[in-house]
Design a protein around this nucleic acid. Sequence first.
RNA 1: GCGAGAAUACCCAAGAGGUCAAAGGGGAUCGACUCAAGAUCGAUUCGCGCAGGCGUUCGCAGGUUCGACUCCUGCUUCUCGCACCA
Length: 926
Amino acid sequence: MSEFDLGKFEEEAHESWIHAFESNPSNLEKFYLTVAYPYPSGAMHVGHGRTYIVPDVIARFWRMKGRQVLYPMAFHVTGAPVIGISKRIANKDEKTIRLYRDLYKVPQNVLDEFVDPLTIVRHFAGEYQRVMTACGLSIDWRRRFTTVDPTYSKFIEWQWKHLYEAGHVIKGVHPVRYCTVDENPVGDHDLLEGDKSEVVKFTLVMFRYGDSFIPTATLRPETIHGVTNLWANPTVTYVKALVDGKAWIVSKEAAEKLILQDHTVEIKEEIHGKDLIDKKVSHPLCGEITILPAEFVDPDMASGLVMSVPAHAPFDYIALRDLQQAGKYKEIKPIPLIKVEGYGEIPAQYAVEKAGIANQMDSRMDALTQEIYSAEFSKGKLFEKYGGKPVRVARDDVAALMVEKYDSAIMYEFDQRPVICRCGNQVRVKILHDQWFLKYSDPAWKQQVSDHLGDMALVPAEVRAEFDRTVGWLKDWACTRRVGLGTRFPWDTTQLIEPLSDSTCYMAYYTIAHKIREIDSKLLTPEVFDYIFLGKKSEDLPEKKKLDAMRAEFLYWYPYNYRFSAKDLISNHLTFQIFHHVSIFPKDKLPAGMVVFGMGLLNGAKMSSSKGNVFLLEDAVAEFGADTVRMFLMGSAEPWQDFDWRNELVISTKKQIERFYATIMEMKDANGEPHDIDKWLVSRLQSHIERTTEALNNFQTRQALQEAWFSIETDLKWYRRRLPDNCDGSRELHTLASVWVRLLSPFIPFTGEHLWKELAGEGLVSFAPWPVADKKLISPRVELSEELLSRTVEDIESIMKIIQITPKAITIALAPEWKHDIFRTIAQSADRNTVIKEIMKDDNMKKRGKEATDAARQCTTLIHRLPPQVVTPLTQEPINEHAVFEDAKTFLEKVFGVPVHITDAESGVHVKAATALPFKPAIIIE
RNA sequence: GCGAGAAUACCCAAGAGGUCAAAGGGGAUCGACUCAAGAUCGAUUCGCGCAGGCGUUCGCAGGUUCGACUCCUGCUUCUCGCACCA
């Protein structure tokens, strides 16, 4: 007998699996599943393990169910992260080098090569494939590709041609967060501070000041009619600069910002803030006004100068009031221009006084400003003399008018500051030109996506709401980049296609990936792909025979059945791919389903490579064995739940596999004659088969393991207890072993292959037929009898525990026939309130009086407590309780070590016998 | 802040109005087998009970119902997402 040695099983299986999972179109029905391809910039940890093992278990399950299964894998290497990594390594960044050298265990000579970004992804792509293979993933590796392969780029170009022609790709101008030191846009994850900041759009209202303009930044251009003065900060240094050839006065900071926002700026002279105070300025829409001093004016906020509307802005109101209380500028009065219900004549005054705010420093000022702003925007209306329009309309109208006729410009600014880049520099808003977008905001496109989403199978069902919301929420997506790896953008080859945007239809590419390599990428025109994927014929197609083969391959496999991914991708990748599919592919080739995963924890904390809180998958496989890792990951939570990796729990998983191995080895040679209890074991096995199958149909790996592993094990324990003395298991055990190995082999395929060979199974267990429950072998009678017996044993045990006497004998007294009648009547009756009356009408029962009503009440309680799958068959055809206990008498005596008597309750043995009920005999321990 | 989901005994977790003191697993404790350890098997794991029972529980506070772990409302806490990033 061979020893349990996972390492050896792995070696054997790998040998037999070479090329085994390469999958081609056939007569069988297909099952195509994909998983989000990895970006290989580091080593795999156990969290990655689950991402790829769940689909593998499902793939193996469907393969055994007789489907032609395709599970492909590729590597996403486009984008910028790896560029940053190589730069950091080139700059000898200690932290990065430590991560790669010590945690990921990259040999020094390889690490030296990492100054080239492509080397990094090539190295780790190789590592990924090696570790994935070690985990037993049944991947068709012939189809492997990377997203920088020339043929893949051709595929992307084809795809984008279609998106462009459909009007989904548009060119625009876009304000972005920009670091002037890095000379690059910065994403949220690159920010040290201000990661919640948003870019807001200010209108610069241009006041005339001598030969210059003073631009004041506002979000409320419609309030121009209520401007009473400007605010300048007397402590700040302003500059006079030629902006696009015109003289502007702005803060120093603003001058720098304007350069990034499409203006030419030439600074002429500095002007001290205090020199602006009391100067006159004018604007055609409000006439001549004065510049007043205010320290709240922030030079780093937009232009550094603001207009004052004391009637509608609490800050302006208070600042003016403070000055007036000091006896200055008494002649200035707030000019209201917006009517808003519930805020009196002058809303800012009303709100400030109502809140009892004493001065500018009050902490409630921001909230108050926000309140007035919202109230006026949603409910406010301009006075008739200013046009009478609602604020929400007037705002845009006035802004447009100002830009058109009164020299106004737009200035972008953050809604909060500071915003600091990872490099420590202040982040600015920069306007990017020639920025291209995918027009996800297009309502018609959204509608197509929503419609298809409704037809898709989403697992678990709860994620549907999040998908729906994402489709509604998506705005235009900037889809070109200036740095990184990737495919050139066809309409501006200085730019690259953004890495999420090149990963939306590659599931279709898998179907042809191994064949398209044979064609020179220069020949891969859009017409070639039109033919392969859309069946569009055109003249002069190259390599027609090969194209036909690819077309056939695509038609066979597509659409994919299920896509697997972690839930954090719902709001981008998973939704994007539906957008792209509905735009390019015909209806019958659209994605069929998705399975969304939960996240992984390590010892209760989030896994994070940068924090060092990772356990490498390769180390886990080496330490515990691939099957252990697989079974642990599948059994610790359902795929969509978060899971937690804990080494001490993994160890006990390994013991379980070992126990399974020992049990199968023990059963494989069993060949005794079947006993009564075998019928029970076989009957139970059928429902375990059914339930395991059902669970895997629904991707419930944990539930499936529960059924296929623990339920069967529990049954076997009872079986062994019930086996007569000196009896070995029967030949039925051999059948059970064969079924059991197959049920578990999607989870533990290495052990599965080994045991399958031990059982003399045909071929590989990976391709063995999935067990099917045989209804004929299910015997409810037998199961019910065992249920009665085991319940009674439990009862006896629980009584013995309490009474603490050493029993000399046990008597089991069975309920008389008339109690069975009552039990049946109650179980079958619809109305439990009147059923007792019904029963008592019977003369036979009347005679028994209280005894009968008591029995009826007890039966009612009992029926409530028994599961319906017990009650229903009992009412249809009662089991012969006497026979059950007589047959099990030897067993009972063995268990309890005392003589067991079986008798009828009414034979007068004991007063306690009166408590006997159907399915619940009275127990007398003496 | 906004959107989506979650909260069950020592831990993980099943549970979709009466089958619930609540499956299963883990851990722990006790016992059996062993010279011993490991493995395996059995028992216990909310409290109280010398007869199969009773009492109190499923984040917190209310509500609906004859009856709620399950439905509704509010609150608290946690996870994920909120974009130009894989």
